[in-house]
């Protein structure tokens, strides 16, 4: 939201000069025929990626020196928008003179950076970052053909956001470490979801195995698992005061009260007050507990840690 989001510009205004020039006049567009590869003493690799029915397709040609694994010549043909053509062209350029192993390391982010006019201004608008991913995938495809291995062997982790290349393990870790609860937060922390948005939720440009909403739901469920004991679906912080009192009572009933009663005592919940980021729970010991030495040490600590564990980490228990 905000002023810049209200009147949409054209995506073309956000293309770098380099992208425009390459679209108008691609440098590595073309083919390498078997005859041409033979003449170079090179192995011809022809790799396809994407599909016209999806809106993007690219064919990459490599002439590779079989002795040194160096890519002597690299050409492309592409079905796609301006960004797809410019990205394919840049990718073909970046491959030239590299060994196949070096080429595998080229990512879509390298391709995008190579098309920038100035180092800190993106070469394409966010939703077009997706087009550069294909340029990355087709390199892996070509390398797999050259080496005679499966394309999956080049990827050692699961990538959730391909545009920003953010892995599943990174996302899981960042979400938990920072207690992230919204897509916007994930995007701010990791850049995942900032580009073509396919990875956010089902229904985008591309189908995925796992989406950012799934990761949020997974974490939410994990947190709620703790809260199931409270008898309410909502986290403690979002409960009404009555719900808070009842849930604290329930946790005490199920986990603490019995032990106190066995010793001839009991406790009573007096009030719950929000104190900055804390929830102060005021209790009164009854019966035998009221004079017990442990009531301000061990027992108190046990009550507090159970409530923290079951309801909210910010709970403090204050006996009166």
């Amino acid at each position: 939201m905000g002023i810049d989001s209200l009147i949409g510009g054209t995506i073309w205004d956000e293309y770098s000069q380099k992208v425009c020039e390459l679209m108008n006049n691609p440098q590595n567009m073309g083919e390498i025929t078997q005859e041409q590869a033979d003449a170079m003493g090179a192995k011809l690799i022809v790799a396809d990626f994407g599909a016209e029915s999806c809106g993007d397709a690219v064919r990459l040609y490599w002439a590779v020196d079989p002795k040194t694994d160096v890519i002597l010549e690299s050409k492309f043909k592409s079905f796609g928008c301006g960004t797809a053509i410019a990205s394919s062209d840049t990718m073909a350029s970046l491959c030239k003179g590299k060994t196949v192993d070096e080429a595998i390391k080229i990512t879509n982010i390298d391709v995008e950076k190579a098309m920038r006019d100035t180092p800190d201004v993106p070469a394409v608008p966010a939703q077009k970052m997706h087009c550069s991913v294909m340029a990355y995938d087709v390199i892996k495809k070509a390398a797999s053909l050259y080496k005679g291995v499966d394309i999956a062997s080049f990827e050692n982790e699961i990538i959730v956001c391909e545009c920003a290349r953010v892995s599943l393990s990174t996302l899981r870790e960042v979400i938990r470490l920072n207690d992230l609860t919204t897509i916007e937060q994930i995007t701010d922390y990791t850049k995942a979801g900032a580009f073509c948005k396919s990875c956010i939720r089902p229904g985008g440009h591309e189908a995925k195995d796992i989406y950012l909403v799934d990761l949020l739901a997974e974490y939410e469920k994990e947190k709620l698992g703790k809260l199931a004991d409270s008898g309410y679906d909502a986290p403690f912080a979002q409960m009404t005061i009555v719900q808070r009192l009842k849930s604290v009572d329930k946790v005490i009933d199920e986990n603490i009260r019995q032990m106190l009663v066995m010793d001839g005592g009991n406790i009573e919940i007096l009030d719950i007050k929000e104190n900055g980021s804390h929830f102060d729970i005021y209790i009164r010991y009854l019966g035998a507990c009221s004079g017990c030495a442990s009531s301000s040490t061990g027992t108190l600590f046990a009550i507090e840690s159970i409530l923290k564990d079951k309801l909210d980490q910010n709970i403090r228990v204050i006996p009166i």
Binding site: P26, M29, E31, T33, Q34, L44, V46, D48, F49, G50, A51, E52, A57, V58, R59, K77, S78, F79, I85
Partner: peptide, 18 residues
């Protein structure tokens, strides 16, 4: 169409995936 992969050369035996 000169740029397009739809009309691109493929060597003998290449199985098009596009």
């Amino acid at each position: 169409r000169t740029i397009s992969s739809s009309y691109a050369y493929a060597p003998e035996g290449h199985e098009s995936k596009l």
